[in-house]
Structures are given as C-alpha cells and as structure tokens.
C-alpha cells in the first residue's frame, strides 16, 4: 500500500517536472512545442556527456538546462517565430524539428543505449519501506520547481510582464512590454526546463535517441488538462498520473501506458478549457 502511494506521488512528480516546460510555452506563446520530446532527449544526452567526461553527476542538470536555453532561443528565432499566427503548423514544424534533432543525436552518438551516472543511488527507508532515493528526490525537485515557477511568475517583473502578455498581449504592448522578448525568453526557459527534466530522469531510465518520445504525448495531454496553470498541472499530474499507476498495477501495464491519453481526451471533451482554465 505504501509502495503504491509512493509510486503515485513519485510518478506524479516526474510527470509534473517533464510537462512544466511545455506548459510555460503554451501559456505565454499559445503554441504547442512538439519538439519537447527531442529536448528531453537532448537533456538526457547532455547528462551523458557530463558524466562521460568525468564531471560530477550533480552538474548534469544545470548543464542540460543551459544547453536547453541556448537551443530554445535559436529554435524560437528560426522555426517558431514565423509561425505565431499558424498554431497548427507550429505543431508540425516543431515535430519536424524534433526529427532533425533526433537524427543529429543519432549521428553524433549512435543508436545505442547509453547510461549516465546518477547523482544519487540506492534506496531510502520511508514508512518502513525501501524506496528509490532518486525518485523521492524528484518529488522534492517537483515541489521546488512548482514553487520556483510560481515565484518567478508572481514576484518578478519578468513574471508580471509574462502574465500581462498571457492575459492581453495588445494591452501589454500598449504599455511598453516587448512581447517578442517575452516570448523568446519564455521559449528559452521552456526548453531549458525540458532539457533539465531530461537530465533528471536519466537515472531512472536509459538514454537513447528516442527516449523523449513517449513523454511527449503524455505531457501534451497533461498540459491541456491543466488549463495552463501551475496548480492545475500539479492536480492533473496527480490525478492522471495516479490513474496511470493504478491501472498499470491492477489491470495491465500496457493499458496503463494509455491511461493518461484516454482520460485526458475524455476530460477535455467535458471541460474543453481544462481543470483550471476559463
């Protein structure tokens, strides 16, 4: 029972961390970034590079985030900016971009599976059960991430500008806010979060060129259900992540894999704006 509870909590945390980057981009730029999976993969390989070169595993996440930020700025300028007025095409273009990035990774690293050293290994005793220490750490990371993003959004000038752009871009521009700069920074931040998330999950699974793909669709669904709000994402992760764990454990792992997708499709039909939206 405890193990099930911990599974639900940690799975929700991981889903939250992975989907956060996608959500910020959708919130501020009203765009779906289908290269998100590829960014996760880039993060994974960044982690691999760091440990392969003998640096401390604790540096993997900051390095991955940095790589992601730079990549995000470049992608926004070249691929995303021309497509502001064509959101469906933006999905396709970022998907194509994801393919390109994946192929570059294959070219650079080969198709094989890699492993990165984990910053923390072993298990922790919690509630009289031995549980993966890293998974538990990720719960803490998710909480910090949620708090940090909320702080960024509500306590900084950048956050205020971003919220203004989300609510009414024209009014924000009329007050002197350069909405293009806000978008660029947001995309960079979203990409950094995605890459960072990729680095964070590598201790749990192996690194291969397609590692990001399964997370893409699930993140996408979670973000839509969340109504593009941080508490909404936390709730969506808990609800749908919990459902996934329950179905995987008690019904079948294969059906568990589609739980999020199916439940999200149904939820969105009932409440098209998501749990917190509107």
């Amino acid at each position: 029972m405890t193990a099930l509870f911990l599974d639900i909590v940690t799975t929700s945390a991981i889903l939250f961390i992975v989907a956060a980057g996608l959500m910020i981009i959708l919130g501020v730029m009203k765009l779906i970034n289908f290269a998100h999976g590829a960014f996760l993969t880039v993060g994974g390989y960044s982690a691999y590079i760091v440990t392969d070169y003998g640096f401390s595993p604790w540096l993997t996440v900051p390095f991955a985030a940095f790589v992601g930020f730079v990549l995000g700025i470049a992608v926004e300028r070249l691929v995303v900016r021309p497509l502001y007025s064509r959101p469906l095409d933006a999905i396709l273009a970022t998907w194509g971009l994801g393919i390109v990035i994946t192929q570059i990774i294959v070219f650079a690293f080969g198709r094989g599976v890699q492993f990165a050293e984990s910053p923390m290994s072993g298990t922790l005793e919690i509630f009289a059960v031995g549980y993966s220490a890293w998974r538990l750490t990720l719960v803490l990371v998710a909480v910090l991430l949620g708090v940090g993003l909320t702080a960024l959004l509500y306590l900084t000038r950048f956050g205020l500008n971003a919220r203004a752009v989300i609510m009414n871009e024209d009014l924000a521009r009329g007050l002197g806010i350069d909405s293009v700069k806000v978008r660029v920074s947001t995309f960079g931040l979203g990409a950094a979060l995605a890459c960072g998330a990729g680095a964070l999950i590598t201790p749990l699974l192996s690194i291969d060129p397609n590692m990001g793909l399964p997370w893409l669709v699930n993140s996408f669904m979670l973000v839509l259900v969340s109504g593009v709000a941080i508490p909404g994402l936390a709730l969506a992760s808990l609800l749908l992540g919990g459902a996934q764990v329950v179905v995987s454990t008690f019904v079948s792992p294969i059906l568990g894999g589609v739980t999020i997708v199916v439940f999200a499709a149904i939820l969105l039909r009932i409440r098209p704006k998501g749990l917190f939206g509107g």
């Binding site: 203004a164 609510m167 009329g174 007050l175 002197g176 350069d178």
Partner: peptide, 23 residues
C-alpha cells in the same frame, strides 16, 4: 511597433479591455 511607441513617454488609455482585471 506599439511597445516602442509606448516607451516614448506616451500614455494610452483604451476604451475597452484597458486594465488587467485579474491583476
């Protein structure tokens, strides 16, 4: 561009949707 003009010491009060109600 509007944001550039807005920074040239000019204040604009639109008729509709002029304030951020959620802020």
């Amino acid at each position: 561009e509007p944001h550039w003009i807005a920074r040239r010491s000019i204040a604009y009060t639109p008729q509709e949707f002029a304030i951020f109600r959620e802020l």
